[in-house]
Design a protein around this nucleic acid. Structure first.
Lengths: 209, 209
DNA sequence: CATCTTCTGTTAATTTATAAACAAAATTAA
DNA sequence: TTAATTTTGTTTATAAATTAACAGAAGATG
């Protein structure tokens, strides 16, 4: 089990490496990769050490080998289905952005309680009524739920998600998602207001130093 | 200067507290606040200790006092302007969601190079051409830029942002934002694919344990 | 060819963040 | 009123994450 931060960085490295590969770059040094991410080369090397990757020459890491190696760590064997709960603007934007970019994860369904939206496709994925959640998740191998509904609505879906095969939640709502007692669901609360307030705090204090 | 994580949590506490206040709750215990965020009560008390807040009774913290205290830590004296760079769907969703929620921060302008978008208002904020960036940021007291443009376009705006009064960047692009050498800009790269991959990794490994 | 530099992989040290432990004060219960 | 419980604030300990230090090897330089 890798440290959280390392997992995040591996994902970021991979995306940078994929871009570099498409630009025709075949080898990359730890320094180079580091500076592209605003971190130190030691950090990069340490992360790669943790996953057991090493290069056999001094021309830098082989980009395509490293991509494959990171993928062998991060990707699951089978495609992981992702379901969107609350098919508003944010969800539409995320779905369009995400689908097609990664092969081992795919947003396969959306759920909403607005009858205007259900029964048709939005951003190329089918929108179901929230009542069908557990059933469709089962059918579509959904293991991750992406919450993009109004904060007020979150209490109404908590038990629905708890009663489904979903194992991980990525919550964009301003209200934290707390799974049922004893559940070992992996939850990531992720609020844009908090991020903005964090940036504001640290630029504010920059003035003093 | 508070630890990063504490700043994040304070922002989250405040939002929970504001919601509780609107529900008529006047006092709240550390245990209660903690369980709403999936953390321990010790963590809550420690965070409050760090900012120097203490309660004078055993009925729990006074919600409205605590909100004011956190605000005195997190909020700047004057309103901080935020500019959106790349007025697509994600930006529209974020802007509509964000504006009106916090009084000390406000998305005041958007910039785009699509002539279909410039010169009018989207999500109630004016959209300018990217050429006007520095000028309008100066005029509107913009100190934070929110990057929501295509990854390919980021290299084209880097020098524009570096040459502006912007002090902090919140980057939703899949490509990391690296400010000019020697700049002390505060950057937060924040990619949805990374988050999903992180969740995927940790639910994947749940199976083994 | 010999030296000098550069880069990697790994260990050791430091810093940051979380959790445990506990004394003091206040409320509750007997 | 007195004892038991609860909650806080703070100190001490543990764990996680980052950074520094350095030996060894590949490649570059003279």
């Amino acid at each position: 089990m890798l440290p959280e931060r390392t997992v995040e960085r591996l994902s970021e490295y991979r995306r940078t490496l994929l871009r570099k590969l498409s630009e025709g770059v075949t080898h990359i040094h730890s320094h180079s990769l580091a500076s592209m991410h605003g971190i130190t080369a030691v950090q990069v090397r340490r992360d790669l050490m943790l996953i057991g990757f090493s290069s056999d020459n001094k021309k830098g890491y082989n980009v395509s080998e490293l991509i494959d190696f990171i993928s062998s760590i991060l990707d699951s064997r089978n495609v992981i289905g992702v379901a969107v709960v609350g098919m508003g603007r944010l969800a539409t934007a995320i779905t369009s952005y995400f689908n097609g970019k990664r092969s081992k994860m795919r947003i396969v369904a959306a759920f909403d309680n607005d009858p205007e939206k259900t029964g048709r496709q939005i951003a190329s994925i089918p929108v179901y009524s929230i009542e069908e959640f557990a059933e469709q998740c089962e059918k579509l191998s959904v293991r991750i739920a992406l919450l993009t509904l109004p904060a007020k609505a979150i209490d109404g879906v908590r038990h629905i998600i708890d009663a489904s095969p979903v194992e991980g939640v990525l919550n964009f709502t301003s209200k934290p998602f707390t799974p049922a007692e004893g559940s070992n669901m992996y939850v990531e609360d992720y609020d844009i207001i908090t991020l903005l307030e964090k940036v504001a705090y640290f630029i504010k204090d920059d003035d003093i130093s």
